Simulated scan of single mutants.
Amino acid sequence: MDPILVTGGTGTAGRLVVARLREAGRDVRVLTRSARPRADGVTYVTGDLTTGDGVAAALDGVGSVINCAGANGIHEQVARTLARSAAAAGVRHLVHLSVVGAERVRVRSRFDRQSFGYFDEMRHGELAVEGSGAAWTTLRATQFHDLIATAAGFLVKSPVVPSLTRMRFQPVEADDVAARLVALVDGEPHRGYVEIGGPEVLPMKELLRQYLDARGLRRVLLPVRLPGAAAASIRDGANLTPDHADGTRTWADFLTGGSLAARAAAARG
């Protein structure tokens, strides 16, 4: 079978995609900005999605592409460069990773962009793929466990932790998303959108409470209501996909099942 090119192949989802493809015996290329030797059956090819340098060569002979590249601030540019290059190369299927709510979270003001501009940025990336001429499928995922854990870890550094009122999240295991990306890539292009979310929807207060319990910490949770259209959209559930709660791992399982719990135990001495 033709090689599959993975972009963002060293990131949270991308490295899991690469691992799953290799387990399936696939020929994998990973696009990187700097040269790396071939390792573990993976060929690393040099290219820059912000400038387009090396991208055409990386796509030479490739059958399909899984795009996990999510560079902040330049996501639209990266998506457009890759999708147009994939179309020009005659790639059979481009599978693009985005976020649930990209088209529903209303980003209208400067405050919206500062707080939740990620959704708007991802939407522009989706539109760049859609208009590129490539044969595409976009997978929208809810927030990864890892991302929410990183945000919670930052917040709990303070003895008083802001908890956004009436906001709910549906955290999903990154490997569940990787599995769906790999399953999609061999199928026919949808030229449309597919969604995946975690198995449960939790208020932010409950996410933080479980995080604190897993780390053995005590903090005061302070209810905070954010203004703006984007925050209102999220309070209305624009970031959720309850009809596609296909994830297999709960937030509690994530918190107690690996490195986070081990770090917490080490910190307590």
Rank of each mutant, 00 (worst) to 15 (best):
M1T: 14
L5W: 07
G8L: 07
T10I: 00
G11E: 01
G11F: 06
G11P: 06
T12I: 14
A13P: 05
R15T: 11
V18M: 09
A24V: 10
D27I: 12
V28W: 04
V30R: 05
R33T: 12
R36T: 10
R38M: 04
D40T: 10
G47R: 12
T50E: 14
G52C: 10
A57C: 01
A58L: 01
D60K: 15
D60M: 09
G63Q: 05
S64V: 11
I66H: 00
C68W: 08
C68L: 10
A69P: 07
H75M: 08
E76C: 11
E76S: 14
Q77W: 00
Q77A: 12
V78R: 03
T81M: 02
A83W: 08
A83D: 00
A88E: 15
V95R: 02
G101D: 05
R104T: 03
R110Q: 06
F111L: 15
D112M: 01
R113D: 01
Q114P: 01
Q114K: 13
G117L: 05
F119R: 02
F119V: 07
H124N: 14
G133V: 12
W136R: 12
W136L: 08
T137W: 05
L139F: 08
Q143P: 03
F144Y: 15
D146Y: 10
L147D: 03
I148D: 02
T150R: 15
A151L: 13
A151F: 05
L155D: 04
S158F: 11
P159V: 09
V160F: 04
V161N: 02
V161I: 09
P162S: 05
S163G: 09
S163E: 02
S163Q: 09
L164C: 03
L164I: 15
T165R: 13
T165P: 02
V172E: 01
A174Y: 01
V182A: 03
V182I: 10
L184S: 09
V185T: 13
D186T: 14
P189A: 07
H190T: 13
H190A: 15
E195Y: 11
G198D: 04
P199S: 03
P199M: 02
L202V: 08
P203E: 01
K205W: 05
L208D: 06
Y211N: 06
L212D: 00
D213M: 11
G216W: 10
R218A: 07
V220A: 08
R225G: 01
A230F: 07
S233T: 07
S233C: 00
D236W: 04
A238P: 01
P242Q: 08
P242E: 07
H244P: 01
G247R: 15
W251H: 11
A266W: 11
A267C: 08
R268D: 07
